[in-house]
C-alpha cells in the first residue's frame, strides 16, 4: 500500500513537470545576467540560494550594477515579491497544522509555477500527508532545477565576449515577464503609468523616481479597475 505522501508527490510531479521545462531558459538567463553586472560565480550562486526568486533577482540586478542605495534595492525587491503575500495568504490554511520548520521550507520554496498549478488541489485536499507530498516534492525539484541551470548560466557567461551588451538580457527577461500580465486593461494602465512615471520622475533625488513610479502605477491600476467596473455596472 502506497503512502498518501507518495501518492501526493506523484500527482504533484505529474502536474508540475510539464511547466518546469519552461524554467530552464529563465534559470540560465538569470545566471548569465548575474555575471553580466560583475558578480563572481560564487556571488551569483549565493544570490540564487539566498533570494531564489527570478523576478526579484533580475529586477534588482540593474540597481546593484549601478550602485543604487541599499534601501532602494530592498524596496524594489519587496515590491517585485509582493504577489507572494497573496499566494501565502491563500496557502496558509494548507500548511496550518505543520511544524514551523516545514512552514519555513514551504515559504522559501513557494514559486509562481507551483502556485498556479497546485493551489486549487492543495486547498481542496483533506489529507495533510498527501498535501505535503503534493507540494514539497515538486517544489524541491523546482529548486534543484533552478540552482543547476543557474550554474550552467553562471559558467556559460564566461564564454561569451565581454562587449556583447549582455546586461540587456535582464531587460529582455523583465519585458517578457511583463507581457502575460497585460491581458486586462487595468494592468495596462498600471504598467503604462509605472513606466512613464519612472521616466518622468527620474531626476528626483535618491532615485526616488523608481519607487514613485511604481506607487503611481499601482494606484492608477486600482483606480482604472474601479472606473471600468463602475462603467460596466451602469
Amino acid at each position: 500500500m502506497e503512502s498518501s505522501f507518495r501518492r501526493g508527490a506523484r500527482e504533484g510531479m505529474r502536474d508540475f513537470l510539464p511547466l518546469s521545462v519552461g524554467l530552464v531558459p529563465w534559470a540560465i538567463v538569470t545566471g548569465i545576467a548575474m555575471r553580466s553586472i560583475g558578480l563572481s560565480p560564487l556571488e551569483a550562486m549565493g544570490m540564487n540560494l539566498l533570494v531564489y526568486a527570478g523576478t526579484a533577482q533580475l529586477g534588482t540586478l540593474p540597481l546593484i550594477g549601478s550602485g543604487a542605495p541599499l534601501w532602494l534595492i530592498f524596496l524594489t525587491a519587496m515590491v517585485l515579491n509582493l504577489r507572494f503575500v497573496i499566494f501565502s495568504a491563500t496557502l496558509a490554511p494548507v500548511f496550518h497544522d505543520h511544524r514551523f520548520m516545514r512552514r519555513l521550507a514551504s515559504s522559501y520554496l513557494l514559486v509562481d509555477g507551483m502556485f498556479a498549478v497546485g493551489a486549487d488541489k492543495l486547498q481542496r485536499a483533506d489529507d495533510p500527508h498527501w498535501r505535503w507530498g503534493y507540494y514539497i516534492v515538486p517544489s524541491a525539484y523546482c529548486w534543484l532545477l533552478w540552482q543547476l541551470c543557474g550554474i550552467v548560466g553562471v559558467f556559460g557567461a564566461g564564454v561569451i565576449p565581454q562587449d556583447w551588451s549582455l546586461e540587456f538580457m535582464t531587460t529582455i527577461a523583465l519585458t517578457v515577464m511583463m507581457i502575460p500580465m497585460l491581458r486586462e486593461k487595468p494592468m495596462w494602465v498600471a504598467a503604462l503609468v509605472g513606466g512613464l512615471g519612472a521616466v518622468l520622475l527620474r531626476e528626483l533625488p535618491l532615485r526616488l523616481g523608481l519607487i514613485a513610479g511604481i506607487a503611481l502605477g499601482i494606484a492608477a491600476g486600482f483606480i482604472a479597475e474601479r472606473a471600468l467596473s463602475g462603467r460596466a455596472e451602469r
Binding site: V79, I86, A92, M178, A191, G194, I214, G217, I218
Partner: peptide, 28 residues
Amino acid sequence: GEKGRLPPALQRALRYAPAAALSALVVP
C-alpha cells in the same frame, strides 16, 4: 500559521505591483 485574511481592497491593489514595478524598471 493563522488563518489570516488579507483585506480584499489591498489584495486587489497588490495585483498591480508586479506589472507597475517591471514596467518602471524596463521603460526607462
